[in-house]
């Protein structure tokens, strides 16, 4: 009977694709803004825009397979890795190299990492929609998502330290998501998904969503407020950044679903 068909892999694939697209949108907008701020000084600064835009198109289409798809996700990973190199170089070429100030204001190390993750998650989604076999247990994906969330926590923590945690809400992304990631990591190791993890991942997705509103408020707090958007969108807290949490949390929920299925 139709109802007997196992829908979990497809749902998981959809969650992964949704997570990858959300992460991709975050990367696209964030790198668009940051690289515009950097005046696209290096032509390579256009690459992550192209990569994330194409990946989003594929992830959004929901259809699996095909060489162009695989190529697009591979490109995301490759461009992300290249970006990681460029960004690290950017930090180290500043006076005194690896200092807090250079990490605060240099090219963000975490951002290209998000592009890599988005590519990996998109590819995983494709595999699942295809045969799903290799990723069936979901544990590897859960581990990847946990790693990604920890990375985003590091990035948010660094940037919120730069903002001196001046608003108590700035503690949210460095408290809830790490708990979720830790719980998810434990589940990935044991292979036993706990309800806690799902709840914390839901909360993380929520933090990522309301984060946009908080950042919009942050932009309004700057001199001239939204009227001065040409300065404040770039100078204020980055509005596209928080959804990275939501994207990773959604993808992680897909992994949890797979783990549940694997346990039967």
């Amino acid at each position: 009977m139709a109802s007997e068909v196992d829908t979990a892999p497809r749902t998981a694939a959809r969650l992964l694709a949704a997570g990858a697209s959300t992460l991709g949108v975050s990367v696209l907008l964030d790198s668009a803004m940051e690289h515009y701020r950097g005046s696209f000084r290096n032509p390579a600064m256009a690459l992550p825009l192209a990569a994330s835009a194409i990946s989003i198109a594929f992830d959004g289409s929901g259809r699996g397979g095909g060489f162009p798809r695989t190529a697009s996700h591979s490109a995301s990973v490759a461009i992300g890795l290249t970006g990681l190199g460029f960004h690290t170089f950017n930090v180290f070429k500043r006076p005194s190299g690896l200092t807090f100030n250079n990490l605060f204001y240099g090219a963000p190390i975490g951002a290209p990492g998000a592009l890599i993750l988005s590519g990996l998650l998109g590819a995983a989604s494709d595999r699942l929609s295809g045969d799903g076999g290799a990723l069936g247990s979901g544990r590897l994906l859960a581990g990847l998502a946990a790693f990604g969330i920890f990375g985003s926590v590091g990035e948010a923590g660094l940037l919120h330290l730069k903002g001196s945690f001046q608003n108590p809400a700035m503690w949210l992304p460095v408290t809830i998501p790490p708990l979720a990631a830790a719980s998810l990591a434990v589940d990935a190791m044991t292979g036993v998904p706990r309800p806690w993890t799902t709840a914390l991942l839901g909360a993380t997705a929520l933090v990522g969503t309301v984060g946009v509103a908080f950042h919009a408020y942050g932009v309004s707090r700057n001199m001239g407020g939204w009227r001065n958007w040409r300065q404040n969108l770039l100078a204020g807290p980055p509005m596209p950044a928080p959804p990275a949490f939501a994207g990773l949390a959604i993808a992680a929920l897909g992994a949890v679903l797979l783990m549940r299925r694997a346990r039967g």
Binding site: S39, R41, M223, G224, N228, R230, Q231, A235
Partner: peptide, 17 residues
């Protein structure tokens, strides 16, 4: 330059204004 100041303050960079 007020209320709008500057965003790009590094060498050889300029804001559109």
């Amino acid at each position: 330059a007020s209320p709008r100041g500057y965003v790009r303050i590094e060498g050889d960079r300029r804001d559109p204004w």
